[in-house]
Amino acid sequence: MLAGLDGDAAAYRTLLEDLTPMLRTMARGGLARAGLGNADVEDVVQEILLAIHLKRGTWMRDQPFAPWANAIARHKLIDAMRRRGRRAETPIDDLIEILPDATPQPEKSASELSRIVMRLEGREQDVVQSISLDGKSIRDTAARLMISEGAVRVALHRGLKRLAKLYRDDDMAEQSP
């Protein structure tokens, strides 16, 4: 994390990749305990990674890293579970008497992240998709979109912040119907 904060992108990537299996275990456990099934595990993991990235400034270099990451992950997991719990509540009560077999069918929808990336605007969407899906570097993305590397960096950062906001707004919309 230290190297990542100091601008070592490779070290930072390794850190995020190493965290992912732990986050997956945690998300699976949390969703299972809440009786929500496994379909959303990857969505929750992605939301946690995004939060760890955007909030990495709240980790103090003199603190141990694991409790900090754990606190971020727990907060986002609880958030995600609350949202999904609300979503699941009504239909299940209705269906339970109709359906003889109550085994939940996991929805085969596209991942939440893909859906939310589609809601980014213009350049932010182009840049996030180019770097995420096509694995392009900042320089290649700049060349392909014919904008400066600085503009790509700005659009990427804004895009990621907006992704977190879109997750939140989804939550808000459901809180106050």
Binding site: L5, Y12, E17, T20, Q46, L49, H53, I131, G135
Partner: peptide, 18 residues
Amino acid sequence: MNTNDLINSLAADQTPPG
């Protein structure tokens, strides 16, 4: 979009956290 795709973007975003 899978998790490794997202990590591509997170690792590329080197905007300092303030």
